[in-house]
Simulated scan of single mutants.
Amino acid sequence: MKLKTLLLFAVLCCSFLLVKAQDKSWKEHNRWIWGPSVGYQYQSGNFLKVSGWGLFAPNDFQYMKIDAGANFSWMENQTTVVPEVGFTYYLNDFVLFPFVKAELTPYTITPKVGASLFSIVDLGIGYGFDYNTKKNFKPIDGFTVSVGVNIPLNFHLY
């Protein structure tokens, strides 16, 4: 029962933030859009990716996103959580945004390229380089494929 109440409270707070963001004039808006994201990545195994992110526009045609989160996996008969930070550079502001991305964990650096639908749904491919193999774990390296959904919490239409 407590979980349902907490979830309902979180949904109401998020919806209040979305409605409140539309009340401000353009000059009052923060230039950052932020929110949570969830995704899937295959890189020497399956990972559930959960993170928080912030997106800003250095000009009218390019966007940069910074994210930090965790990758969850079940490998070698154990649950593993791997922290991660990432930086994404979106090259365009049309419907399909091409991007380049770099992800860094304590064990791997992974450059990626891909495409994003309005920077909400990201599809990426890349190659991970293992530089510090996790103890009692297999190396996390090689080709990677990922899909992620970014949920903007303070998006505004103007």
Score class of each variant (00 low, 15 high):
S44G: 14
N136W: 11
A102G: 13
F72K: 06
Q22I: 10
V145Q: 07
T88N: 15
E103T: 06
Y127D: 01
L8N: 07
Q22H: 12
D60H: 10
P36M: 12
V121A: 11
N71D: 11
P152D: 06
Y40E: 03
F16I: 14
R31M: 01
F87Q: 09
Y158F: 12
L55R: 14
T133W: 00
F137T: 02
P111D: 05
K20F: 11
D130H: 09
G86N: 07
N92R: 08
F97M: 08
K135G: 02
V81C: 06
I120E: 02
K135D: 13
F137P: 00
G124L: 04
G86I: 02
F97P: 00
D122C: 03
G35H: 05
L55I: 02
L8E: 06
T5S: 10
L104G: 05
K49I: 06
A70V: 12
Y40H: 05
T5H: 04
D130V: 11
V121K: 00
W53I: 03
L48N: 00
T144H: 04
L55A: 04
S73E: 04
N59C: 08
Q43D: 03
H29W: 02
C13I: 15
T133D: 05
V19P: 10
D67R: 10
Y131P: 06
L12G: 07
D60W: 05
S25P: 02
P58A: 06
K138G: 06
A102K: 01
M64Q: 10
I109A: 15
N59P: 11
I33Y: 07
T110S: 09
W34T: 08
K138I: 02
P36N: 12
G39I: 11
L96K: 03
G128D: 08
K112R: 13
T88V: 13
H156S: 14
N46V: 07
N77P: 03
G52V: 07
V113I: 15
A102M: 14
L12Y: 04
K2Y: 09
V50I: 15
I120H: 01
Q22F: 09
T79A: 15
Y63N: 09
G126S: 08
N136I: 02
A10K: 01
T110L: 15
A10S: 15
D122T: 05
A57T: 09
Q62R: 09
G126Q: 10
I125K: 08
L17R: 04
G86H: 09
L3A: 12
E28N: 12
W32N: 08
G39H: 12
I33P: 01
I125A: 15
V147G: 14
K101H: 11
G128V: 08
Q41N: 09
F129C: 02
Q22L: 12
V38I: 15
E103L: 11
P106G: 04
K20V: 05
N154H: 07
Y89A: 13
E76W: 04
K65S: 14
Y131N: 01
L18Q: 14
T79K: 11
F87N: 05
K112Y: 10
Y63R: 13
T133I: 03
W53M: 00
P36D: 10
N77I: 07
P98F: 10
E76H: 06
T133V: 09
K49L: 07
G148S: 10
